[in-house]
C-alpha cells in the first residue's frame, strides 16, 4: 500500500488527519511539493484555516496546479471541509477567493441556523452521523449527500469532497476513510 499524501497549506492541523489515516493502517506524509502531490496514489486536501491563505499557499507552492493535473489524470483526491470549499470555482470567504475549480459550484456563508454550524449530523442517504464545523457551505450540481439541507458530499470524477470531518467522526469517520482508500 502506498503512502497517502496530505497536502500542507501552511495552516496547521494535519495531525488529526494523519492520526486517523494511521488508525486505518495507512502511513502518510505531509507535503506541498507539486511532483509529490501530482504522482501520489491518494491525496487528502484537509480543512483548516482560511480560504484566502490556503489558496495563496497552494498557488505559491505550485500545489494548486499539481492538484488540477492529478484531477485531470484521474488521481484520487479527498477534500475535507475547507478542502471541499476551495475545490469549487469560488468562495465568498475573505471577500471572495478563486478556488481550484475542480468541481462546478461555489461556497457561500451559511444562512439560517446557528453559525458556525457545529456538531454531529446524519448524512443522507448514507445514514451515518459525522462531525461538522463550518461557516461556509458549497452549492454544486455534483452533490452526492446532504445533512439538514446542506451539501455534505460532492463527487466529480476522481475528486470526492466532504463538508464533515471524517477524522473527527469516530468509528463512522474511520470506516468512511477506509472505504475511500480501499481502491488504492
Amino acid at each position: 500500500m502506498s503512502e497517502v499524501v496530505v497536502v500542507d497549506y501552511g495552516a496547521g492541523n494535519t495531525r488529526s488527519v494523519r492520526a486517523a489515516l494511521g488508525h486505518v493502517g495507512r502511513s502518510s506524509v505531509v507535503s506541498s511539493d507539486p511532483a509529490t502531490i501530482e504522482e501520489a496514489d491518494f491525496v487528502v486536501l484537509p480543512g483548516v484555516g482560511s480560504a484566502r491563505s490556503a489558496m495563496e499557499h497552494l498557488n505559491r507552492t505550485g500545489a494548486a496546479q499539481a492538484l488540477r493535473a492529478r484531477f485531470a489524470g484521474g488521481g484520487a483526491t479527498l477534500g475535507i471541509c475547507l478542502g471541499l470549499q476551495i475545490a469549487t470555482e469560488t468562495t465568498d470567504e475573505d471577500n471572495g477567493v478563486l478556488g481550484l475549480g475542480l468541481i462546478p459550484g461555489y461556497a457561500h456563508r451559511i444562512n439560517g441556523g446557528r453559525v458556525p454550524r457545529l456538531g454531529w449530523a446524519v448524512v443522507e442517504p448514507w445514514g451515518e452521523a459525522y462531525y461538522f464545523a463550518h461557516s461556509y457551505a458549497v452549492e454544486s450540481v455534483d452533490v452526492v449527500a446532504t445533512a439538514d439541507g446542506i451539501i455534505a458530499a460532492v463527487q466529480r470524477g476522481s475528486f470526492l469532497g466532504v463538508q464533515f470531518h471524517p477524522e473527527k467522526s469516530g468509528d463512522a469517520g474511520l470506516t468512511f476513510l477506509e472505504q475511500c482508500l480501499s481502491p488504492v
Binding site: R15, S16, A19, A20, G22, H23, Y131, A133, H165, E167, K168, S169, G170, D171, G173, L174
Partner: peptide, 11 residues
C-alpha cells in the same frame, strides 16, 4: 494535547 490528538477521533 498532542498525545490526545493521536488517539482521539472526536473533536
Amino acid at each position: 494535547v498532542a498525545r490526545v490528538a493521536d488517539v482521539l477521533e472526536i473533536p
